[in-house]
């Protein structure tokens, strides 16, 4: 039996411990904000936080999260009011929006580590998350805007 917290709620799971967190979240908990994009940790669409650390949930077995705390996009801002979400909306960042959960969760981890990131910091941190629509320059701007507001 695996016990973990997901967005503050304690959950128990007695299935295949190899199941990636991605599919546990999406299919079993119906938290579909976390997206499948590649299944191999290559695209970052599935990024979540485990014990506050950013991980790619498509290559993170649920067994490894036993006793840990998982946070997903659904818990980023209670009313879509996280500084990043506000900056995202101000800059009209999303196009299709599919990768944006992964972008936002990655950006949130970045700001926690570097509250005032440089362009270089942003590009290094965000290089793991692919946006096929090409919203990168607005992502960069939104992270900078959020960093200013957060200070």
């Amino acid at each position: 039996m695996i016990t973990l917290k997901v967005n503050g709620v304690t959950r128990r799971f007695d299935g295949d411990p190899e199941m990636p967190l991605l599919w546990y979240l999406r299919d079993l908990l119906e938290l579909t904000g976390t997206k499948y994009g590649c299944g191999r940790g290559l695209c970052g669409s599935c990024t979540i936080h485990v014990n506050g650390v950013q991980v790619q949930s498509c290559v993170t077995a649920i067994g490894s999260a036993d006793g840990k705390s998982v946070a997903t996009i659904e818990a980023l801002g209670a009313n879509v009011d996280h500084a990043l979400q506000r900056a995202w909306m101000k800059n009209n960042v999303p196009q299709c929006g599919y990768c944006q959960s992964g972008q936002l969760m990655t950006a949130a981890a970045l700001l926690k580590e570097k509250p005032k990131p440089t362009d270089q910091d942003i590009d290094t941190a965000m290089a793991g998350v692919i946006c096929r629509c090409g919203t990168y320059q607005r992502i960069r701007q939104a992270i900078k805007d959020a960093a200013e507001v957060a200070l």
Binding site: L31, T32, G33, T34, K35, Y36, T72, I73, E74, L76, G77, V80, Q85, W88, M89, N92, V93, P94, G97, Y98, Q100, S101, L104
Partner: peptide
């Protein structure tokens, strides 16, 4: 926009 910034948009998947 709000749905797309909060993981609440419903895609085919």
């Amino acid at each position: 926009l709000k749905e797309l910034c909060s993981g609440r948009g419903v895609f085919g998947i």
